[in-house]
Design a protein around this nucleic acid. Structure first.
Lengths: 216, 216
DNA sequence: CGGTCCGTTGACGTGACTCAAGTTACGTGG
DNA sequence: CCACGTAACTTGAGTCACGTCAACGGACCG
């Protein structure tokens, strides 16, 4: 199974401190921005939780490995999104940058005014996870890819073309498919004229409605 | 596909009011208990959200249908658990009793003292959903069933045998499988001596460790 | 005691996986 | 700038886990 156990053999886990004008995000106490190279680990299962991260630029994947190397990507977080909250005191997933990424760490203050905001984020995260379950539980490969592309398009502001920061392997592990299936479905959508691959990571949606109608 | 679109053709949606001694649950304002028959709808997509439900007895399934009838069960809630929180003002799933069930409705008060409690529930719900993604995204049928049985055993207090309130179809739709596959895997686990089916809905785990080792 | 729902089992089909062989994109050093 | 090595992606052929279709058995209920 092509599910990147190899990836676990750490890349260059560089993490450089770059201070950018601190700007308060909501009611949290915001810190400076830290940049991560592609592949760099942000946290791992077992790490102490309690800090949230606001994506300033770049993208992050949240995932977990099974003992035999099978990998499931739980979520992608793009610029403008916040992640890192956990039910327990320690993280239960990996968070890694999937491109050069800037994160603003946000320390949860002891007695938060920000609870409603945090609750909203948690509920939204729960909903997202539930829709993800729907997708990988009951949809075909084509439906999953179509849904993924529509989602990405919307999260990038609905432009007619956009770059995806993740590899085919990341997409496969997010959708519960293999890299080969992802590649084949892309080819199928392309030859059906629904999308165009401007480059390997730049996707243009040619027939938005047709694509959306595939989402089941 | 055996995924209960037929079920949508409403059963006897009976909902009888029975008042039981009101008892405050946490910091919420708790109401009386309402009982639902098996199959009765508690809420549906589009219904106004904002009320939570504490399961006094019985069990509830949360699910959603695709347009062609494919069904995905998102979660089961057993006695002692709380459900019903949503990111939006309206529900996006069905909630139905899967056995005679008593629910204590809990109205969210305008300016909650209960926010931390609610946040904790939301985070725990998110974690549960994420582990569910892991399960249906990357595990085989045997692994999913084993995981399901271990989970059910733990949630029932870790007894060596327990009743499951849901049908094979509910289990199938929860795990992203078909009813036939569920049945076959049960048969396989039984003939391997890992479990015993005392009756069709009563499961005895004979080799707890062996079962757990199947969970990947 | 007949109908209905639920569950089981078998035979067969197929969508996605596996294995394998390329090709393309990209970074690095000469 | 090109040569090289590596990672990412694509494509094809064959396989398999799970789905589909179908027949049947048991439990419950009026």
């Amino acid at each position: 199974m092509h599910t990147a156990a190899a990836h676990a053999t750490k890349l260059e886990l560089t993490k450089s401190q770059i201070v950018i004008a601190p700007q308060t995000a909501g009611l949290f106490r915001a810190n400076s921005v830290t940049t991560f190279n592609a592949g760099a680990e942000i946290y791992a299962p077992g790490d102490k939780a309690g800090t949230f991260y606001h994506v300033e630029f770049g993208a992050v994947r949240i995932h977990r490995l099974l003992s035999d190397g099978r990998r499931q990507v739980i979520a992608f977080h793009l610029a403008g999104e916040t992640f890192g909250f956990e039910a327990d005191r320690t993280h239960s997933f990996f968070a890694e940058a999937i491109a050069p990424t800037g994160l603003r760490a946000i320390n949860r203050t002891a007695n938060d005014q920000a609870l409603p905001e945090l609750l909203s984020l948690a509920l939204r995260g729960m909903l997202r996870a539930q829709e993800h379950i729907m997708m990988i539980g009951r949809q075909t490969a084509v439906e999953r890819i179509a849904g993924f592309l529509v989602d990405m398009a919307e999260r990038q502001g609905g432009l007619e073309h956009f770059d995806i920061p993740m590899t085919r392997l990341d997409i496969a592990d997010y959708l519960g498919l293999t890299i080969e299936t992802v590649s084949r479905v892309f080819a199928k959508l392309r030859s059906a004229g629904l999308i165009k691959l401007r480059s390997i990571r730049c996707i243009e949606i040619k027939k938005h409605e047709a694509l959306r109608s595939l989402c089941a």
